[in-house]
Amino acid sequence: MFDKRVYGSLIVMILTVYAIRVLPFLIFRKEIKNKWVRSFLHYVPYVTLAVMTFPAILTAASSVWAGGAALVTGIAVALLGGDLFVVAISTCVAVFLTEMVIL
């Protein structure tokens, strides 16, 4: 069924999200010279990802224990030099095994 209202709403929201994402690329076409701004933008990813990971990882699985196991395993495998793929899969395995033991 083609519902005009649903598609109209979706188009409005899709354009809004894209505007947020694209504006910085239109504004900052050249490299920013200001040292503080450059440093700030350099640190942004690490802070954002750390904030998003903890404590959210604890509640991402069906139990806190499984989430905690994922956190510890992920940090350990990353410290041992595992790449993106390996670390991500290791956290999944940790959750799967932990849930198998406790459920």
Partner: peptide, 23 residues
């Protein structure tokens, strides 16, 4: 259970990005 395990993959990736520079 599978969905719950896959859910965590995203956080695992974040750890893979932030832990090496921290080391």
């Amino acid at each position: 259970r599978l969905a719950s395990a896959m859910n965590v993959a995203l956080y695992g990736m974040f750890l893979a990005i932030i832990i090496p520079p921290a080391r």
